[in-house]
Each structure stands twice: as C-alpha cells, then as structure tokens.
Design a protein around this nucleic acid. Structure first.
Lengths: 263, 263
DNA sequence: TGACCCCATATTTGGATGGT
DNA sequence: ACCATCCAAATATGGGGTCA
C-alpha cells in the first residue's frame, strides 16, 4: 500500500484535506525555520485557514512583532520613517529594558557610533535580534537608495554627477525627544576588525545610510553618497568564537556591519 | 554516500549555503503553492536574501498585489477601510477591464447584491480571485466583529443585549465616487442554491458584514447584528461541475458565499 | 557564476489504526 | 471530532558532475 500519487488540485475529501493541511502546514513552517537558520536569511509567512472559522492566521515567526517588522521592510519605501531601531528595544524585561535604555541613551548621546560597551552588554540572542534590526534598516535604506537612483537616472539630470560630492554634515534635529543635535558620523564594524579612518576619499561606491535611530531622515540625504566611518571594534564575548573559528564564514554575523552591503 | 545528516545551524560553507538556499527556497515556494491549492487556503511568504546584494525579496504569490492584499488582511483591524474589493478590479487587461468596470458599476448601482450576470461573466480564474477577495473581506469583517465582541464583553455594558436589536438600514453615503446611496441589503449565495428570504427573525447568530465595496463603514454598524439576505443564485457555467460532482465537497467554493462564515 | 542532471539518502506525508 | 503513532511511498535535497 503506502500511498498513491497526489494530484495538484483541491482535495475533495474534507477530512483528509484538513489533516493534510495540518501536516503540511507544520512541515512548511518547519522548513521555513530551517531555511532561515541554515542560510541566515529573514523570512516570514502568513497562512489563513479560510475554511475553519474561529481560527487565527498561522504566522511565522511566531512573534507577530517580527512578522510586522519583516512585512514593513518589504514595502519599506512607503514607510521608511515609521520603522525604527527602537523596535528592538521594545518588549524587553524590566531590568534589561532599563539597562538598554540607559545604554541607548548614552549611545544616542555619543552621536550614533556603535559603542563597544553596548555590543558587549548584549547576549547572543539579543545581538542576533539587533543584527536583524540592522538588516531591516539596511534593507530599507538600500531600497530607498535604489529607488532614488532610478528616479535620478530616469530624470537624466545633468547635475547627477554632483550627487557624489561630499554632503555637508546633516543635522538630524532633535533625537530621542531630547534637544541635542548629532553629527552625521556613523560607525560600523568591518570584517577584519581593523580601523579604516575617514579620509573622505574613494567613497563613490558607498552611501550614507543614516543613523540607527527611529527619527525621520531628510529625504535628500539619501541621494548623497558619503564615506562610511569605520572604527576599531572588538567582538563582544558572545561572538568571539566567530573570530577564532578558523572557518571562512566569520563574515556571517559581521557582514551587515561592514560596508559590503552598500556597494 | 548520498548525503550526510544535516545539523540545524548556520551552514559554514558559503558556496553550499547559497546553493542550499536556492534549492530550499524553491522547494519551499513549491510546497506553499501545493498547500494553498490542495487545501484551499490563502497564504503568502516573504523571503529576504540578506547576504546577496542586488536582490529583490522573494515573495509568494508572485503577484505583489496579492501579497499586499494578504498582508493587509493580516493586520486587518488597522486597515479595514483601506482594503476594498476594488483591488480585484485592478491590473486587468484593457478589454476585460472595461467590461468589468461596466459590470462593477451596474453591480454597485444595483445596491451590492451579487448579480447573476456578473458571476457568469467571469472566467474561472477570475472567479477564484474574486473569491479570494471575498475571503479577505470576510476575514476582515470577522476579525473586526471579534474585536468588538471582546471589547463589548470586557466593557460589560448593561445594554449589550440591545445590540441584537435590528438596526435601521445604514446609509453608506456616496459610493464609487458617485452620488447614489445604497440600502444595506447584502446578497450572498447559500449552500443549496435556494432562497432564504429576509424575514428579520432568528438573526441572533449572524452579523452584518457590510457591502462588498471599498467604502468606509461606520464603526457602530459592525457592533449590530443583522439578518443576512440571501437570494437565489445559479452557479456560473465555470463552476457547474462543483454542483454535479456528487462529491461531499461542493461547499468548497460556495462556503464563503453562504452564512456559515459568520456563525 | 548559474542552470541543469544524477543519485543516494533524509525527510515528508497520505493513509490506516487506536485511543479519548 | 481530535491526537498520536506507524509505515511505506513520494519527495526533497546535499554533493558531485557537466555545460555554457
């Protein structure tokens, strides 16, 4: 016996259809989970069981917040300003929350560079989540850049070459509902943990991506290319093994910290 | 040989990781497609390839419009008013579009009941799409109802029993940017293709769901229960086989037309 | 690099059965 | 109705190859 081959059409038998639905749904979610962890990609899925009433949609990841985040970054160009790294700081436990809030404030006050102490303070899972938030942010900015690039090229402005000029440091206005202003320097890790000081040369293939904060970034700054400032950052203890692993994959977690995403 | 067992962790080898990603992504999309067609559910998936640059997110279904629709109905309570059946009428070919526009107008002018000619005019795939749109609409209204039910029960109003009173016919204001007003009657198929005339009795387990149009529905009407008007509708030719099939599954397509969704 | 093909095995899953 | 378990067939997919 075993089983017969399966035609790709709606299953006529209600009972087996429901059973199959549950089995396959489970398998599908399992496989999506595998895909994301095996290949380090972010993904989400929404499944409505239209037939059974009184049933919530099945989603993956389980956390609706994550789904929302992914979905938002999917149609990012429309909602750049509404997505913020602050999402990462939501729904923390009280103590961790306090600690992070403090860290965040100090982080903001020090004008956006990612601080060594900040990274050190995170557990691995927090760091992963932080990385995800950065990924989302990077994607949003990147798609925005692409969008504006296309817009620019179709407009065929004769001034397009001037876009590569070094823009004046943007003033991002009030941050975190306080009254300080911040400079435009943005700090990210690079792959070999070395220093690349900002000499304001060869930045033609990099783009300013804005600070990691949920503030509204003036649109025209996205159109301008700017050098990426890279500081020397030591990996936090939770990720040290990525360094010493000897494999060719240490960029896995670091990748979104370096400039390759923006090339 | 063959292959070794696979640990559920990030694949260290970049090459095989990318390869696996492609294979599994394909398999996943395939399986999602199978799930939806086999079990008649609506689902969507978004996969970002964070590592490779210059790459759009992979989505399923292919049509971004459909993804958008599903996603919107996922967080429906926030966007009830922005989702409309009119989505179904977008991106048609010119001729079909004209025809449908006409049909739509006549449909609206006849105050929302689904017209026989309208259903007849659709191809099977169009009909399926139409069904999907209805499903979405139903889901949105249903979740709205659930939300308000909960709201109501938590408020523990002493007037809650009055919610079952028959509400006055709502005036939905201007429709389709024209100046006509419409009655509240909503027409749906029922399972055995028979007539259930509106006698305004035993409607306690049904709820008014609003017309199938992208107009803003006054919120308080959702809180009121109302009878569902059901007219006699013959299945369009494309779906006749569902009737004569003799199986126990003829409700498969009809289900979202009858009132069972609202019980 | 990507697109396909092969193949041996790992994994999924229809269908049946039994329990509640 | 649901759920768990079993089993064998069907499928997915690592790893390797070839071609362009």
């Amino acid at each position: 016996m075993g089983r017969g081959k399966l035609k790709l059409e709606l299953m006529r038998n209600e009972k087996s259809r429901r059973l199959t639905f549950k089995k396959r749904k489970h398998g599908l979610i399992n496989k999506l989970h595998q895909l994301t962890t095996l290949c380090d990609v972010t993904a989400c899925m929404i499944i409505f069981d239209d037939n059974s009433n009184y049933h919530e949609p099945e989603i993956w990841p389980r956390d609706p917040e994550k789904v929302r985040r992914i979905v938002e970054s999917y149609d990012s160009p429309k909602s750049v300003s509404t997505f913020g790294l602050s999402d990462f700081f939501r729904d923390r436990t009280k103590t961790v929350d306090e600690e992070l809030k403090k860290l965040r404030k100090s982080n903001l006050e020090s004008k956006f560079p990612i601080r060594q102490e900040f990274l050190d303070s995170l557990t691995e899972s927090q760091l992963r989540e932080f990385g995800d938030a950065l990924k989302n942010k990077a994607r949003i900015a990147k798609s925005r850049i692409e969008f504006l690039k296309n817009q620019e090229s179709t407009m065929k402005q004769e001034f397009s070459s001037t876009l590569l000029d070094y823009p004046p440091p943007p003033d991002f206005g009030n941050l975190d509902r306080n009254q300080e202003t911040a400079s435009s320097s943005s700090s990210v890790m690079n792959q070999n943990n070395s220093v690349i000081s900002d000499d304001a040369t060869n930045f033609d293939d990099r783009h300013y991506c804005g600070p990691s904060s949920d503030i509204m970034i003036p649109q025209h700054y996205y159109t301008a290319a700017a050098p990426v400032v890279v500081e020397d950052v030591v990996l936090p203890p939770q990720l040290q093994y990525w360094e010493n692993d000897g494999g060719d994959q240490e960029e896995d977690i670091l990748q979104f910290f370096d400039g390759s995403f923006w090339s």
